[in-house]
Design a binder for these strands. Structure first.
Lengths: 229, 229
DNA sequence: CTCGTAATGCGACTTGAGTCGCATTACGAT
DNA sequence: ATCGTAATGCGACTCAAGTCGCATTACGAG
């Protein structure tokens, strides 16, 4: 039981090797590519180490040695995927920005071509500790990146100072992921809009200000942040 | 091979059998109990058919025949769990009711004794189609039941007519499940409160009214919905 | 009570995931 | 260019999950 909120310890599935350049790097790239392709084709249940070994041309034993199994393969693929940033909207209006974000999530996951890969990847990641850690890191990075739309809104005076931007993003996207990965309910564009609007509304009301950040903001002579009742 | 009339039906998991009373029912109850116990102890990854067979005293082959595997065991356990209703708050105030609900979710899943079982159950259910269907049914029932707090708020005049009660409940609980089952971020009581408050706020603003339902509510105060074509 | 039938018990069999020890290859330094 | 070493290739081995055909038991109807 660790109550630490500071997961500074992000360790990649394989230890930094004394021979990082050359073949090892090539092998890793091939394996990640093969893993993503396999997941996209067969989903997680159809994902086997042997299939990845065959497709990548890397021997089965090597995969088990370096990645430990399907868990590690998925975790590493997820880590590699996390590096690719996605476009961040900047319309000048918080609600519009959030709508763009939820719309983007909706589009990706419901697209019959694009959707299966991240869907299977996320489902797969929930099964193992390594995958869960990679998934946590993935979303932490996403939240941190997307929090900028809220921070800009704060700078504009649209949101109270001390607003937790990542929390705003979570509030906007949570209903989508909730349907996709928990209840299995259908997801439509209207739901994506409503979620964004609800998050914007709550953020404007000051629901996502952390007490600590609010105090810091009070010290500054700029904005008064009345705690919404 | 003629045999045109060969009504050989595939035995579906726990389909209504021609002999529902007696031993079959007892076997099923034992298996469900054993499955829940195993899941609680070892999580999903440690859940094997053999272990359930040993604990329940039912032979392995029987489990595979009737439940098809770990998937079916989990799905059936989930279905059995869905029958147990949980307490619905009625404080006379929507925000308070929603806070109670999110607080309940928070308590259950973070409790070191109670949490592991539903957590593992939900995680497990996401893996198979049967489990996903059972999970979907489970949450549909929960939403339907909990929607009453919103419907009472409508009756009180606290919420606009035509508000989708289930959607209000989803908005309140989604951030919790999002953290628990998608991002793996820690969950605290404050988050549970904020989610409830945000949902209440959005509901009061009329964000969860479906245009259709609102029109119907306007047209006739009677809640009867005509069916037919 | 007796009997027909469905459900379960039983154990051998098949299959594939995962491991191990050793041979071979390729990187990087001298 | 050559060599030491780490990483990969290789195939046999272990073991548990899952399947199959048959024997046995228990339910329910007459």
């Amino acid at each position: 039981m660790s109550g630490a909120n500071h997961p500074e310890q992000e360790r990649q599935p394989y230890a930094p090797t004394p021979r990082p350049g050359g073949r090892s790097a090539r092998v890793r790239a091939d394996v990640v590519t093969a893993t993503l392709a396999e997941v996209a084709e067969k989903g997680y249940d159809g994902l086997t180490v042997e299939a990845v070994a065959t497709r990548s041309g890397v021997h089965k034993a090597t995969l088990y040695r370096r990645w430990g199994g399907v868990d590690g393969l998925v975790a590493d693929a997820l880590t590699a995927s996390a590096d690719q940033p996605w476009p961040l909207p900047d319309t000048g209006d918080l609600r519009q920005d959030l709508r763009r974000i939820t719309q983007e999530v909706f589009s990706v996951f419901t697209d019959p071509d694009l959707g299966p890969t991240p869907t299977a990847l996320i489902s797969a990641a929930q099964r193992s500790d390594a995958g869960a850690a990679a998934l946590h890191a993935f979303f932490t990075a996403r939240h941190r990146q997307a929090a900028e739309v809220a921070e800009r809104a704060v700078a504009r005076g649209e949101l109270p100072a001390g607003t937790d931007g990542a929390e705003v993003v979570r509030a906007a996207t949570a209903p989508l992921y909730y349907r996709l990965f928990v209840t299995g309910e259908p997801l439509d564009a209207r739901t994506a809009e409503r979620a964004a609007d609800a998050a914007a509304l709550a953020a404007r009301a000051g629901l996502f200000t952390s007490a600590l950040a609010a105090e810091e903001a009070h010290a500054k002579p700029n904005t008064t942040t009345p705690q919404g009742n």
